[in-house]
């Protein structure tokens, strides 16, 4: 257990926590936008999964991991568009549609992967997204390996935290979006199109989750595995509540979950006497604990899950 006390161990753990937080962070930023606009998107797990598949496919097909990221984003947005049509235009139940979006993504990715690559033992791979060592900064002791030798999508996630915060709280777009989620009738009466804002928010959510999915399949191992989202989209739902629908809070909460995942991987490698199952459940147990500890002190957008019907339309 000496190894746990070494500096290398801790630097590695924190760097891994930030890396593993990224897909959860991207998904939870998207979910914040959707929920702030009044749409509860349970389908985010499916959007993450289909993003992972779309990203892998695009990178495999074109040889460019960046086109892969784009492919993941588009795949996530495509599923989000279907979800938006059902929940916004047709005003169908958001929870039911979310569950169905997840099932659809599970079916489409499983089917697509088996049809395209066959059921072989050779695992297909795609060009991965290489880490960026930021010149100069990467060489700083301790901070360098933690912050400046990461995957480009990690940096993107950090930039998007600021961008989401600015958009939500410092622009008129953000004001409209929050108004639509709190009091759609009032927003409508001053000329804001509730429908347009909600479509935009859900599509952005799908796009961000799709990029998060692409991170799963294109960073490090660079392969697609069925069900590889492994509940990270659902964890993102809890992150949003824990973060009280705030992007900066989402960053902190995502890193917490990233740390739980990083810790369980490391303990699996080093503490062989603990059954791996006890470690594997860590992120999920943490989610329940986080959720229980925050309730009552976290107030959701007033119009969340409520469809809006424009009168006389």
């Amino acid at each position: 257990m000496d190894v746990m006390l070494s500096e290398v161990f801790w630097i590695g753990l924190i760097a891994a926590a930030i890396r593993l937080a990224t897909p959860i962070l991207l998904a939870s930023l998207g979910e914040i936008l959707a929920e702030r606009a009044g749409i509860l998107n349970i389908g985010i797990e499916g959007m993450l999964l289909i993003g992972a598949f779309g990203g892998f496919l695009a990178s495999h097909g074109t040889g460019s991991p960046w086109i892969g990221v784009l492919g993941g984003m588009i795949a996530g947005m495509a599923l989000a568009l279907l979800f938006a049509y059902l929940t916004i235009t047709l005003a169908a139940d958001q929870i039911v549609c979310g569950i169905m979006a997840n099932l659809l993504a599970f079916g489409v990715t499983g089917f697509g992967h088996r049809v395209i690559f066959g059921m072989t033992t050779v695992i297909p791979s795609a060009p991965p997204l290489a880490d960026w060592h930021i010149p100069g900064l990467a060489a700083i002791p301790v901070l360098g390996p933690i912050l400046f030798q990461q995957n480009p999508l990690v940096y993107l996630g950090l930039v998007l935290v600021v961008a989401c915060w600015f958009m939500l709280f410092r622009t008129s777009w953000g004001l409209k979006l929050r108004a639509v989620g709190e009091h759609p009738l009032a927003a409508d009466s001053v000329g804001v199109s509730v429908r347009q804002v909600r479509y935009a928010a859900v599509l952005a959510c799908g796009g961000l989750a799709g990029i998060g999915g692409a991170f799963l399949s294109l960073s490090q191992l660079s392969m697609f595995v069925e069900e590889m989202s492994a509940g990270r989209g659902f964890i993102a739902l809890a992150v949003v509540i824990f973060a009280r629908w705030h992007p900066v809070g989402a960053l902190g909460a995502s890193i917490l979950f990233g740390a739980a995942e990083a810790l369980q991987f490391r303990l699996q490698a080093q503490a062989a006497d603990i059954p791996f199952q006890f470690l594997a459940i860590l992120p999920y147990v943490l989610t329940v604990i986080a959720l229980v500890s925050i309730v009552g002190r976290s107030v959701q957008p007033a119009a969340l899950t409520r469809p809006y019907h424009k009168e006389g339309h």
Binding site: F234, L237, A238, I241, T287, V288, L291, V292, V295, G296
Partner: peptide, 11 residues
């Protein structure tokens, strides 16, 4: 407590 059953049951 009011913890969302959607998330807890999935976990």
């Amino acid at each position: 407590i009011g913890a969302s059953e959607i998330i807890t049951t999935i976990m």
